[in-house]
């Protein structure tokens, strides 16, 4: 663990791996709940957790708060995403994985996923859980428009586009679930720590 300065009131915790990011994110959320940590934002990334709007002295506290390893991924609420596996890139993904399109679908519905972090757009969650060997490169040229609800893969992540936008992820299917709705008390369906299963719609 290494702490880097981010301006006058921010700190970036650099973690050894993505699992530790989730340990730290959960620990810091918990410490903010109890009032031990004051922070405007706690933002997990791929290998880091950013805390912003913290009072002086917070950097000295962090080493004392080093969380225990593991277990986080099984703790969050479970959300099932009914998915129609009709993505334009299903066949190319099957080729990259060296299996049939049917086997790609089988693997995706059989793999427990969870939200590591969010970004790119409100409600866009980076889902971990796929083995490293199934990582796929982004498209060489992003599509100018990916529809809302598109279920896609890139790098080692799965993700679902909450709104229509340009995008370079490989589309494997789509869902009718509303990923982000500002009228809900919890606007994002998928938040860091949430467990996710893709299920055949």
């Amino acid at each position: 663990m290494k702490i880097r300065r981010v301006g006058a009131a921010g700190l970036l915790i650099e973690c050894d791996d993505a699992d530790r990011v989730e340990d730290w994110r959960a620990e810091l959320w918990r410490r903010r709940e109890t009032g031990e940590l004051r922070a405007t934002e706690i933002v997990p990334g791929a290998r880091t957790v950013l805390i912003d709007g913290v009072p002086p002295g917070t950097a000295e506290l962090l080493p004392l708060w080093e969380p225990a390893r593991g277990g986080i991924q099984s703790e969050g609420p479970l959300v099932e995403i009914p998915t129609v596996f009709d993505g334009e890139d299903l066949e190319p993904v099957a080729e990259l994985w060296g299996v049939s399109a049917g086997e790609v679908v089988h693997r995706l519905v059989e793999t427990p996923l969870h939200v590591a972090f969010s970004g790119f757009a409100p409600g866009f969650a980076y889902l971990r859980g796929l083995p490293d060997a199934w990582a796929v490169p982004r498209l060489a040229a992003p599509r100018p428009r990916v529809p809302a609800g598109a279920v896609a893969l890139a790098g080692g992540y799965a993700g679902i586009y909450p709104t229509a936008s340009p995008g370079g992820w490989r589309l494997v299917g789509h869902t009718d679930q509303n990923l982000f709705d500002v009228r809900r008390k919890q606007p994002a369906l998928l938040t860091p720590g949430t467990r996710v299963r893709l299920v055949t719609a």
Binding site: E41, G53, F180, P187
Partner: peptide
């Protein structure tokens, strides 16, 4: 609307 960065807002 600070406070929602963890949701990508």
């Amino acid at each position: 609307r600070p406070g929602y960065a963890h949701l990508g807002v």
